[in-house]
């Protein structure tokens, strides 16, 4: 923690740790339960990842003390998370190509009308 943690300070956190532990377990049960329900399309993935992200943030914030950390750590982590997001989004968008979109190849208006505007 690096801060001047008096012993009382730490002991006051102990209950929080236990509460967070219980919350995590509850949300694990929820994750499993909702995975058997079909939300249609990609929604299951979105809901599942949302729950997982919530759980992960609890671990980060409380167990890893990121709720009160030094600015330098935040700077490093923000940079890392931005890069990780770049990695995800660019990898996902690598699958997209506007040329393959429906209606892209065929012009929406007849060619003659289109040239008439010039």
């Amino acid at each position: 923690m690096g801060h001047d943690n008096s012993h009382d300070d730490v002991s006051s956190h102990v209950k929080t740790y236990l509460k967070i532990g219980v919350t995590l377990i509850v949300f694990t049960v929820i994750t499993v339960a909702i995975s058997f329900i079909d939300f249609g399309g990609n929604n299951n993935m979105i809901v599942g990842m949302a729950v997982a992200t919530f759980k992960a943030s609890l671990v980060c914030l409380i167990f890893m003390h990121l709720n009160h950390e030094r600015p330098l750590i935040y700077k490093v982590l923000v940079f890392t998370v931005v890069l990780a997001i770049v990695l995800f989004t660019l990898f996902i968008s690598a699958h997209g190509d506007p040329l393959k979109d429906e209606g892209f190849e065929a012009p929406a208006v007849p060619v003659k009308t289109a040239t008439a505007h010039h």
């Binding site: 994750t31 995975s35 299951n44 599942g48 997982a52 759980k55 671990v59 167990f63």
Partner: peptide, 14 residues
Amino acid sequence: DLVWIFLFPLLYLL
């Protein structure tokens, strides 16, 4: 633990 929190739904559930 955090990695597993993502791994479990991704590999087992979704």
